[in-house]
């Protein structure tokens, strides 16, 4: 399994909110174990989709200057189980952001039905705080391009985001 739990961003407003989508497909191997003949999208992986949506929103807001890692799931709750054929839509907003960390809130919906909600807390680590570099610049940019952040992203004033020149 690869580690991509959102397929693309649909909305991305720097420092404010982002919407990403994730299709649930039987082509994904893990669904054949969870559960055999009765595929349900694991809620732990939905937390990851939420964390990728919110984490990229936060990392962009601090200009990728620190290493953003999920430090705490303050609370997560799920109301039903997503199944193959569903499109999960994650909406993330930044509740609070300081240099050392951020608190975000993310919802997950399927066809406008609320599937889950979570409060996710990210630590923003500097070099020397126990975490080596996570990505080479081009590895990170490849992911951001794949997520279409610079196709659809806007800053607070509505201007298109500039694709960084790393």
């Amino acid at each position: 399994m690869r580690w991509f739990w959102i397929d693309r961003f649909d909305e991305f407003v720097r420092g404010r909110h982002a919407v990403a989508v994730k299709n649930v497909s039987l082509a994904e191997e893990h669904l054949h174990d969870h559960f055999p003949g009765a595929a349900l999208m694991p809620n732990s992986l939905i937390v990851e989709g939420m964390a990728q949506t919110a984490g990229l929103l936060v990392a962009d807001a601090i200009d990728y200057n620190r290493r953003v890692v999920l430090a705490k799931v303050a609370a997560a709750e799920f109301h039903f189980d997503a199944v193959p054929g569903d499109t999960l839509r994650f909406k993330a907003e930044i509740l609070d952001l300081k240099p050392a960390g951020s608190l975000t809130k993310v919802s997950s919906t399927v066809d406008d039905r609320l599937q889950g909600e979570a409060e996710l807390f990210f630590a923003h680590l500097e070099p020397g705080e126990g975490v080596p570099k996570l990505f080479e610049p081009d590895e990170l940019l490849k992911w951001l391009d794949q997520m279409h952040i610079y196709d659809i992203g806007r800053d607070e004033s509505g201007q298109p985001l500039q694709r960084p020149d790393w």
Partner: peptide
């Protein structure tokens, strides 16, 4: 240690105060 920052966020919001580092 990670919780103290989370607590700071929540106290700031709940009481409308600013808590410097």
């Amino acid at each position: 240690s990670i919780d103290f920052l989370d607590i700071v966020f929540r106290l700031e919001k709940s009481f409308g105060i600013k808590i410097p580092r």
